[in-house]
């Protein structure tokens, strides 16, 4: 026992070091974003003296981040709303209603979970171009919904499986049809799962690079992440302003993480538990 306790303290040292290595790059970026160019060239590591918030302003306006930010908000907002609506409806049907072909449909959903986007992106781009959805908001939103829906359905269905059938039966006896049960039972009782899955879906969409790059070629439609990559060329000699842009793109995600850490961990692990 004593040996184990000593091991624990020994282990704490590298663990602290890893924790620092995990957090330091972010702190470095924050510090650089508040420096002047001159300060950065003289000494990258020293704490900023000037607290230049203007870098953030410069990235926001002349860097074009404001536009990209709004684009991302629009796309992520609609995509997550549709994902939760479609995902909870399908999850409810697959977990509590019996119908011909339900098993096949569930398996099709699972299969779709294992199709990576890289494998379908070429034909998808062609389909999107043929239907006029390329380089439009609805096109990108649809691409996101298609990408993350299998995951959303899977998690919603497994959450709804935990709601006892008696509750559904009771609601039925009270005169509710399937849609009534969905609206009055499944939506309110599923709220915790909807929150977890919704946050994770939002993170996935917000952070995506490949799908946005494929679907939104024109500059005014860029999402925030693509905007950040374009910022690099624009500010290659002005590292502080570039860092400020990176920081603006990271802050919403970090805020969401700090507030909803538990929900995110739940959603990440929910998939692993079912095996």
């Amino acid at each position: 026992m004593r040996e184990l306790r000593v091991t624990k303290w020994v282990a704490a040292v590298p663990m602290m070091a890893i924790a620092l290595a995990t957090i330091y790059p972010l702190i470095f970026t924050l510090n650089v974003a508040l420096k002047t160019r001159h300060e950065y060239i003289l000494d990258r590591f020293s704490l900023t003296e000037s607290l230049r918030w203007d870098n953030l302003g410069a990235a926001w306006t002349s860097g074009g981040i404001s536009r990209y930010f709004i684009n991302s908000l629009i796309v992520v907002g609609f995509a997550v709303a549709l994902l939760l609506l479609f995902g909870s409806m399908a999850g409810f049907a697959l977990s509590h209603l019996r119908f011909r072909g339900s098993r096949t449909l569930f398996l099709a959903c699972l299969a779709a979970l294992f199709i990576p986007f890289q494998v379908i992106m070429v034909p998808l781009a062609r389909t999107m171009a043929d239907t006029g959805l390329m380089d439009t908001y609805p096109g990108l939103i649809l691409a996101y919904v298609a990408q993350f829906l299998p995951f959303t359905i899977y998690l919603m269905a497994s959450y709804y499986n935990g709601i006892p059938a008696e509750i559904v039966d009771a609601a039925r006896i009270d005169g509710n049809g399937p849609f009534g049960v969905y609206r009055r039972i499944m939506v309110p009782l599923g709220a915790p799962a909807l929150l977890s899955v919704g946050i994770l879906d939002a993170l996935f969409c917000w952070n995506d690079v490949l799908i946005a790059l494929l679907m939104m070629p024109s500059a005014q439609h860029r999402t925030l992440m693509i905007g950040v990559t374009s910022l690099r060329g624009q500010y290659s000699s002005d590292i502080p302003t570039f860092s400020a842009g990176v920081l603006i793109a990271a802050v919403p995600v970090l805020a969401v993480y700090l507030f909803f850490q538990r929900q995110i961990a739940e959603a990440v692990t929910a998939g692993s538990m079912k095996g």
Partner: peptide
């Protein structure tokens, strides 16, 4: 959505 934009492609 899944059939049109994932399985079919």
């Amino acid at each position: 959505v899944i059939v049109l934009f994932r399985l079919w492609p």
